[in-house]
Design a protein around this nucleic acid. Structure first.
Length: 816
RNA sequence: GCGGAUGUGGUGAAAUUGGUAUACACGCCAGACUUAGGAUCUGGUGCCGUAAGGUGUGGAGGUUCAAGUCCUCUCAUCCGCACCA
């Protein structure tokens, strides 16, 4: 029978659905595997990146099911977010309708690809039931002091009309629409992720075995811990007088306390309080104030182009020498790191050096190289020997650091401090299509939490989306409510949550049996059984944001007593991008390949086979039409040659010794493929080599016509390939084996035993001949046979050394 | 600038601990079947050379009987972070 992807795939998709084949068991005594791929945003249709993502996770899920494990392989949709609103503005659709239509369409695509998701645990984060529990968690976090509201300078995207977290600002532009962001002063809710900075950093070491190094490094850099010295710089009397005693000192942080004697000026950020005070009280010239205002309004990218600054006409006292040090403003000093003020050591810091050169400030060297002369035309930033540093003279600069800090601490003029680049996570968004923040503003009670029994605070559906401002603000009733505390008229918070909040705990929700979804988010017992996620698969683009937030939520939930582990994802696999013609598939480049069209033309199995065969999962994958043809050809041949099988209910028992050479070779190749497949699933994840092994075995089976060898071969190969090409595998397996082979297969060592083996013969490391020897041939005989085979190269030569590498080669070292 | 990766045939890629480099597939070439082939099957295919042979994993050195693999230096490309004091 001719291979027809359409009828076979339809048949099995229907069968799996009818038989609830992929629902996890609630029997918690069984060994489990939780296989999770990052859930998609319902943008409309699947793209090849999705197909790759879910083909990988599905291969794991199906493999573990064959092993008899209880497998959770769920799917959901990260369905809140701006694109739904943007589509609404563009097409006049409703965000909800647009979202759920897309979900329906994409679900059909998933099942047309044969992915073995649990249908019963499907959900979308915009479901009211999901919002209900999320709002409840938000209230818990607020009560724990992990959520707070404050006024601050925020990243504002003028195009999307919303606030962005620091993590969502890419090169000074909005991560979604690429519009340059501006700073805006407004109220915003924050998660206190910084309270967990140290743990988020420290626990990365627990992930070393299961996470790619690259991701660990990215998170480490993002958290950005640095240790150093913090101390106060006091103004001199004249400066204090100038400031009308409003300020007596300011705080600075340095990671280079060893350079303390080289401080020759200090610099404040243009946004610093002292600067603001001086501007407001006209303590600076009109010209200077204008310059400062211009600095503040310059985007962070432009600020980096050129160092600029000006003198404030103030002086502070050096804490150790008592010398007067001028105070400047510098555009490279960041207000949101440390205290927004730095001590400047131009001799040993490149930025300070450039600034000092430009404004002709003194440069005081205090460290000289370990060897050679100090070059005074550049900042010397390496480790060296201290000089001009009073009691610390002669010390190694690196080693002196803690001595300097000790001295500051002993004299109570400074202290050891740690600083982080990580900032608190701003989570409120001025958008409609998100989970409402369940808070109420009351004139007399202030900020009040909604009562839990009133959750969810659901989004009203009768809204008008114009693209300007937040539709919830303009809604006739949503905003108006009673204060849960005093009962007076109050206003409901109209900000909604960043969609990263939803994706920070969805993997916990999946652990809950859908039958309990109404009453609880998840149960402790369910979480204890299913978590952590054994394999988490997704794109590298989530290396920082999503993965950091999910780790943060896990720790918070632990501290709230919901769960009792520290890290959610045991193993992380970051898949490479899908490229076409050398660049990432994207609509704007017009180089996309529509999965639907591939399924239509070749079938789901072909798409899955190609995508897993073309490259290892972590590497980029170049789409190649003739490669797809090749994958399709293999499936056709795989299906076609199955006619060589004799139907059987158990694996055929074969007397290996009675077989001919080709038959033995075929069996060996089959079991080699099995060994490799086991290894691939256990640790290497290189499905391309697993598939290549199966292809080799097929080629070897083809050279013989023993029907038992064919049957045994297919019994095993079909089992190996089921995770990759499930439809055709089940079809063959049902027809000949009643699906009995879709289970753990045992490796038979006997097929690897060989009577004779081939050895390469090298002379001085150069391959010269090949010999066939008995498997148990003595080393002396092997050397003799090798010498005979390579006699031509050994004439007139003196043999220096003879090396036999068992089962591999013989190397003879000669002279002359 | 800092950090992380990656460089192997015409192409996607193999080579798990240093041990016969290029498995598997695409492409190409030849042949078979065929009215026909963008179907199927068989064989060939790193490069130079008629051959013997030489040469070959970005480049240059080194360690070793033996290096794609280890060490030193270097070049190129990609990704992340980036005035973080």
């Amino acid at each position: 029978m001719e291979y027809s992807s359409r009828s076979i795939e339809k048949k099995w998709q229907e069968y799996w659905k009818q038989n609830r084949s992929f629902e996890p068991s609630t029997d918690f005594s069984k060994e489990k595997k939780y296989i999770l791929s990052m859930f998609p945003f319902p943008s409309g249709r699947l793209h090849m990146g999705h197909v790759r993502n879910y083909s990988i996770s599905d291969a794991f899920a199906r493999h573990y099911r064959q092993q008899g494990l209880n497998v959770l392989h769920p799917i959901g949709f990260d369905s809140f977010g701006m694109p739904a609103e943007n589509a609404a503005i563009k097409n006049g659709s409703h965000p909800k309708g647009w979202t759920y239509d897309n979900i329906d369409y994409m679900k059909n695509e998933f099942y047309a690809l044969g992915f073995s998701f649990s249908r019963e645990r499907e959900m979308a984060t915009s479901d009211e039931l999901y919002t209900k529990f999320e709002q409840s968690f938000i209230i818990d976090m607020y009560e724990k002091g992990l959520l707070y509201r404050k006024k601050g300078m925020l990243n504002w995207c003028p195009h999307d009309q919303t606030v962005l977290a620091n993590e969502q600002v890419v090169d000074g532009c909005c991560w979604r629409c690429d519009t340059p962001i501006v700073k805006k002063d407004m109220n915003q809710y924050y998660f206190k992720i910084t309270q967990y900075s140290d743990e988020l950093l420290g626990d990365l070491s627990k992930l070393e075995a299961g996470w790619p190094k690259q991701v660990l490094t990215m998170q480490e850099n993002w958290i950005g811990k640095s240790n150093g010295l913090e101390f106060d710089l006091h103004f001199d009397e004249a400066s204090k007088a100038k400031l009308s005693a409003a300020f007596e000192r300011f705080d600075v942080f340095t990671t280079r306390p060893d350079t303390i004697y080289g401080v020759s000026y200090t610099a404040l950020a243009p946004e610093h309080d002292i600067v603001t005070y001086m501007c407001e009280n006209k303590l600076l010239s009109q010209e200077s104030i204008a310059e400062i205002t211009a600095m503040k309004n310059t985007s962070s990218i432009d600020r980096q182009k050129e160092k600029k600054g000006l003198s404030l006409g103030l002086d502070v006292i050096h804490p150790l020498t008592g010398a007067k040090i001028p105070v400047w403003i510098a555009n490279f000093v960041l207000m949101d790191y440390g205290s927004g003020a730095v001590m400047a050591v131009p001799a040993h810091d490149e930025r300070d050096f450039d600034f000092a050169k430009k404004y002709d400030l003194p440069i005081n060297a205090v460290i000289k190289p370990l060897e050679g002369e100090l070059d005074i035309n550049a900042a010397f930033t390496e480790v060296g020997i201290l000089f001009n540093s009073a009691a610390f003279d002669g010390m190694n600069s690196k080693e002196s650091q803690s001595h300097v800090i000790d001295y500051f601490e002993a004299n109570k003029i400074g202290k050891r401090t740690t600083n982080y680049k990580l900032k608190d996570w701003g989570v409120s968004r001025q958008r409609y299509w998100g989970a409402p923040i369940p808070f109420i503003h009351c004139d007399s009670c202030g900020l009040v939490m909604e009562k839990k029994e009133n959750l969810p605070i659901a989004l009203p559906e009768d809204i008008e989306i114009t693209g300007e401002g937040n539709p919830l603000d303009k809604h006739p009733t949503f905003k108006h409510c009673k204060c849960p505390k005093c009962g007076a008229d109050a206003t409901r918070e109209t900000d909604t949550m960043d969609t990263f909040v939803e994706s920070s705990w969805y993997f916990l929700r999946f652990c809950a049996d859908a039958s309990n979804w109404e009453s609880e988010a998840f149960s402790k017992e369910q979480i204890a059984y299913w978590m952590g996620v054994d394999h988490y698969i997704g794109g590298i683009e989530h290396a920082i944001l999503h993965l950091l937030y999910a780790r943060f939520f896990t720790k918070v939930f632990r501290d709230l007593g919901y769960i009792n582990f520290d890290e959610p994802f045991d193993k992380l696999l970051t898949q490479g991008m899908v490229l076409k013609d050398g660049s990432k598939m994207s609509k704007s480049k017009g180089n996309t390949v529509d999965p639907d069209a591939i399924i239509e033309k070749y079938g789901a199995d072909t798409a899955r086979l190609f995508i897993l065969f073309a490259a290892p999962p972590t590497q980029e994958l170049e789409w190649n039409d003739s490669g797809v043809e090749g994958a399709h050809k293999f499936i056709k041949r795989f299906y076609d040659r199955s006619s060589n099988i004799v139907a059987t209910q158990t694996i055929p028992l074969i007397a290996h010794a009675t077989l001919n050479k080709e038959e033995k070779f075929a069996r060996k190749k089959v079991y080699e493929a099995l060994t490799r497949a086991n290894d691939v699933f256990a640790e290497r994840y290189t499905f391309n080599t697993m598939i290549a092994g199966v292809m080799e075995a097929m080629n070897a089976l083809n050279t013989q016509n023993n029907s038992d060898v064919w049957s045994e071969g297919y019994w095993i190969l079909t089992s190996i390939m089921e995770p990759v090409i499930p439809h055709v595998a089940w079809e063959i397996s049902e027809k000949y084996f009643s699906c009995n082979n879709l289970s753990v297969q045992k490796v038979l060592e006997e097929v690897f035993v060989e009577e004779s083996i081939m050895l390469g013969v090298s002379i001085n490391g150069k391959r010269r001949a090949e010999i066939e020897v008995a498997a148990d041939e003595s080393e002396a005989n092997i050397i003799q046979i090798a010498k005979d085979a390579a006699a031509k190269w050994l004439e007139d030569a003196v043999i220096v050394k003879e090396i036999v590498v068992p089962k591999k080669l013989v190397n003879i070292v000669i002279k002359g």
